[in-house]
Amino acid sequence: MDKTERKAWNANHKTLKEMLRRPEKHEEAVQLFLTQHSLLHTISNQESLAAALLDDLTESTFRKYPVKRPDTKNSIAWHLWHVTRIEDMTMNILVAGRKQVLSTANWLEQLHIPFEHSGNDMSEADIAKLSKEIDFKALLLYRQAVGKHTQEIISQLEAGQFRLKVESDRINRLFKEKAVAEDSTWLAEYWSKKTIAGLVLMPATRHIFLHLNKCIRIKERHQKMVDLRDGKEAVKRI
């Protein structure tokens, strides 16, 4: 996605917000959501923001922590883990009331990390551990699985359901299943005030969009610095 396509994504997100308020626009809203959401994942053959991030992404760039950015110091690994966990728990627990994707297929074992929560309020030591140890390929497969589940969930909603509030027992499940850390009660409280439409507009779309853009900026800066370093070293050898 280039700058023009990102602007179009933002414009379509505003249109989606308006559609979600109108039950008579339900089918159109679902289709627009599926398009917007697909542009944040690699679950289809179309060009996406996720694909732009992964293009030429090196493992050292993926794992680098901390990074020097005014809006984040967290690694790309952490950002991808964070948005995927948020999407998994909000869509599967809060919207659909079913199992998280993380609870299937031994994902934690495949990912080689001990963390089940969203990564909010995570210590620097734990971010460093996650950045170093998470399995890159498994994380991408987990993201893909979460994305597919989200599209199934939203496609199965009926007209009027976007207006429904999140059920309190589903909020409680976030803590029982260690999806949200005890230190991050503010996050559960924030979601408890949302409608299904609110969850669709932020965790499932715009939240991912914002974090992927951060990741791309991290990648571009880090790999530019590597190129400059390599260039200087090459000059020294001449």
Rank of each mutant, 00 (worst) to 15 (best):
L164Q: 10
L201C: 09
L57M: 04
E28C: 01
I218D: 10
N106C: 11
V83L: 15
E220Q: 15
I238E: 00
M1A: 12
I208W: 02
L187H: 08
D88H: 05
K176C: 09
E167N: 00
I154D: 05
I127V: 13
E167S: 10
Q31F: 01
G198S: 00
F62Q: 09
N45I: 11
E116F: 06
F209H: 06
Q156L: 06
R229F: 13
W191F: 12
R63F: 05
D126G: 02
M89Q: 10
W191N: 01
L39G: 02
Q223F: 08
N92T: 12
S184C: 07
E116T: 15
L80N: 00
Q156W: 04
L49A: 06
D126Q: 10
F209C: 07
L141G: 08
L140P: 02
P23M: 01
D126F: 04
I218E: 08
F136C: 10
W191Q: 01
K99A: 14
A8D: 00
V200Q: 03
Y142A: 13
K3A: 13
I43N: 14
V30Y: 03
Q161A: 08
H26Y: 06
W81T: 00
K176V: 07
I238C: 10
K137I: 09
P23G: 00
Q100W: 02
K178Q: 12
E116Y: 03
G198A: 04
E233P: 06
D88N: 08
K176W: 02
K14Y: 12
K17N: 11
K148L: 15
K132W: 00
R22Q: 05
K7I: 03
P70S: 05
G198E: 08
W9A: 06
L210E: 07
I43W: 01
E5N: 12
H13P: 11
L20I: 04
M202D: 11
H207Y: 11
A11I: 15
T72H: 07
K64V: 00
E87T: 02
K25L: 02
M122P: 04
P66F: 07
L39H: 13
W9N: 11
T104I: 11
W107C: 08
W9F: 15
N74A: 15
T42G: 12
T185L: 12
D169G: 02
L164C: 10
L130G: 00
G198F: 05
L139T: 11
G231N: 11
R85P: 00
I153R: 11
M1K: 10
R21S: 11
R143C: 09
A77W: 01
S44Q: 14
I127K: 15
L199N: 03
N45K: 03
S38T: 15
D88P: 01
F209Y: 14
K129T: 15
K137Q: 12
L111D: 10
P70L: 07
V67Y: 02
M19N: 03
Q36K: 07
W186H: 13
A77Q: 10
D71W: 12
L108T: 07
R21P: 01
S118P: 00
I113P: 07
A179D: 04
F209P: 06
V166M: 06
K129Q: 15
I238W: 01
H117N: 14
S118H: 03
H211T: 04
Y65A: 14
E167M: 09
E24M: 10
T4I: 15
E116P: 03
E167F: 08
A96I: 04
